[in-house]
Nucleic acid binder design. Sequence first.
DNA 1: CAAACAAAGTCAAGAATAGTCAGACTGGGC
DNA 2: GCCCAGTCTGACTATTCTTGACTTTGTTTG
Lengths: 168, 168
Amino acid sequence: MASLADFIEGHIKLLFDTVDSACSEPAHCGPIELQRRELAERFRCAPSQITYVLATRFTPARGYLVESRRGGGGHIRIWRLRADLDLDLLEAVEARLGAGVDPTTARELVARLVDSGLIRRHDAEAALAAVLDDDQLGGAVGELVRSRSLRAVIRFLLLQGRVDGRRS
Amino acid sequence: MASLADFIEGHIKLLFDTVDSACSEPAHCGPIELQRRELAERFRCAPSQITYVLATRFTPARGYLVESRRGGGGHIRIWRLRADLDLDLLEAVEARLGAGVDPTTARELVARLVDSGLIRRHDAEAALAAVLDDDQLGGAVGELVRSRSLRAVIRFLLLQGRVDGRRS
DNA sequence: CAAACAAAGTCAAGAATAGTCAGACTGGGC
DNA sequence: GCCCAGTCTGACTATTCTTGACTTTGTTTG
């Protein structure tokens, strides 16, 4: 018998199908958006069950990226990744960004992305310029700001950005 | 005298007959699905007895493939293999995939499958491209992802995929 | 600005499965 | 009757799902 988690997974994937049918190029369709509380009510389960499904079924290894916001009007956004992404690399980047990064680490990460051909050097430099710009920011706050900006930029580049055809 | 194991074996094979009669092309019918606990209750035996039957009667050598999931909503799925499969080869593939594979091994396995005529070169290349992407995947995580993806692809090709007529 | 409200996240406990493995049991061949 | 291969069980382990109490983050209101 399928578990509740299976049903929720199926429901979310149906949402993607709906988006796809209204989008000329499925690989580049935007994210789907949902509310944890609303979905939990629909399936009559604990909200943390939704978190569980997202954490186990919509991982980078399975081709998804999840982003969320708390507070009033909070939401959860899910992207489907391009098929040709290097998942280990993406996971490494995500893991490191989660903790907060110093300028050196940021440069290393972006260099890896360029080396792997995932983003163009030109775009990478733009990203770094935008992110590192004020290295005046010191301490934990600076780390956090940098980490968040960099994550946003990298996500943008990976998900919507154009890719240099040459792969190393 | 027929043992309990024989009865359970017979029961499972009956399930396949049921599926077949509802399927136009028996060779390509999907798997049957059951629950170890449920079956054990029906036959009033220890659950591990079911495991025993599966391990001794539904082996690749006898033309079956078994897959399972633990936890709530857990289940056991059984496929019947196509008659023309090279069982030794399949067992070798299964054994190796179980442990996780490095890129080289993955290539060797797929090459063997192509050589034996079990899958088409074109399909094989697609599979490898999807699985290996480029060899940047490193470490245990990479091995696992590769192993799982490759197993899924190969199972698909062997069980439902079309076969190149030429056998070596 | 502070307090109240409204999300989402974290984590650990518990339930529901399935797997493993050593040892007991059984039935047929000798 | 004895032995061996095959059968069967039970205790223990591993995995997956589900929930609930508590925390964190963001918004709105007074």
